[in-house]
Simulated scan of single mutants.
Amino acid sequence: MIEQPSRGPGRRQDAPDRVLLLHGMGCGPWVWREVEAALPPHLTAVAPVVAGHRGGTRLSRDAANSAPEQMVDDLERQLDQLSIDRIHVVGNSLGGWLALRLAERGRALSVLCLAPAGGWRPGSVGEKLVVSRFVLGHRVARRLERTPRFLRAARVRRAVLAPVVHDPPAVTVADTVRFVQDLADCQALRAAIGHAEARQLTAILRVGAPTTIAWSGDDRVLSGDWARDGFRHLRVDEVDVPDVGHLPMLDDPGLVAELIANRVRTAAPSSP
């Protein structure tokens, strides 16, 4: 979670030199580690744990009905603890939707979405496909969490990572173990699998900040026009990034850092 300031929250101010990095469903802040190292010196990364994920704020008992909004509320609370009003926001997958929701609430100076979730139509074939992929991934992760020694085998790691990265062998054993642990111990994912309401990501009606959506060329989780339909009305910049998977931060952290730096640099002043 974001470290709280020693004196508690004060007057909120914009943070133009900081970037909020939001991980996706079943992941954790570690996915941004190499991106943070590649950011230009004038940018400082803030990488919280999204509520409902391992090490983060627990979702309340009514998570089945309000899990996504609880995540947004918790992120706002954490920004308030740091006395931050608006900040540059970057999000991957679920984190991309959360970034757009923060922009909708007036908390973003700019937004970069990497393969954002929430573009499917409720009840669509696309949504069912995403759910089936997460159900399978969660089951496999639960089994491997109990027998992590199997992850030492390159073929097992490849099978686990192939759906989310372009180059599985480039991911270390340690990071693969982290990936499996986060996926296995994810309260938000369990809620989304068990309750349709918990995976209903509210349609984004507007964005209050300069926004870019970057789609991964080798995305096997959100692959197809159905993943983009729900964002077309926003009329934001869209780019296609070749040779990266659903987690582009693991495939090409330098490129992701460049995308972040470009988005921050070209962000025009926006009104609160």
Rank of each mutant, 00 (worst) to 15 (best):
D73K: 08
A267W: 04
S93I: 04
R86W: 05
V241M: 12
R33L: 04
L161K: 06
G28P: 00
H195I: 07
A154F: 00
I87D: 03
P116W: 11
L250H: 06
E127P: 03
A188G: 12
V160S: 02
V173E: 12
D237V: 12
G26E: 11
G118Q: 10
W32K: 01
G52Y: 07
V239Y: 02
H195C: 01
V164R: 13
Q200K: 05
T57H: 12
N65T: 13
D74R: 07
D175N: 08
E69S: 11
T212H: 01
V221Q: 13
V130D: 11
L112K: 01
V173Q: 10
S216P: 00
M1D: 10
G10D: 13
S6N: 04
V90W: 05
R86V: 11
V19T: 10
E36P: 00
C186W: 15
D218P: 05
V156W: 02
P269W: 03
L79M: 11
G208Q: 12
T57A: 15
G8S: 12
R139E: 14
V160Q: 03
P168W: 15
V111S: 04
P41W: 00
V111G: 02
V140D: 04
V130T: 06
A45C: 04
V156S: 04
D219L: 08
L183C: 15
V46G: 07
L21D: 14
G230W: 02
R107Q: 08
T211I: 04
I204F: 06
D229N: 06
D80Q: 14
N262M: 12
Q78C: 03
L151K: 07
Q187A: 10
I2W: 05
R107M: 06
V156D: 02
A227N: 08
E36C: 07
E238R: 09
Q187V: 14
H138W: 15
Q78K: 01
M25C: 14
T211K: 03
R139P: 00
N262A: 15
P272G: 08
A115H: 04
H23T: 13
N92A: 06
D243M: 07
R133L: 15
H53G: 07
S83E: 11
L161F: 09
F134H: 15
A141M: 08
N262I: 02
R142C: 10
R235I: 02
L151S: 06
A170C: 03
G254W: 05
P16I: 00
L255T: 15
P272E: 09
M71W: 10
I84H: 09
A159K: 06
M71Q: 15
R155C: 02
E238H: 13
G26A: 14
R265L: 11
R11W: 08
A198P: 05
M1V: 12
G137P: 03
L102K: 05
V135A: 12
P116R: 14
L20C: 10
C113M: 10
L136D: 13
V177Y: 00
W120L: 09
D62M: 02
T172C: 06
L144I: 09
A115R: 01
S93V: 03
G217Y: 01
L136C: 06
V90P: 01
H195Q: 00
L75M: 12
H138K: 12
F179V: 01
T57K: 12
V236M: 07
I84R: 10
S110M: 05
V90D: 01
E3A: 15
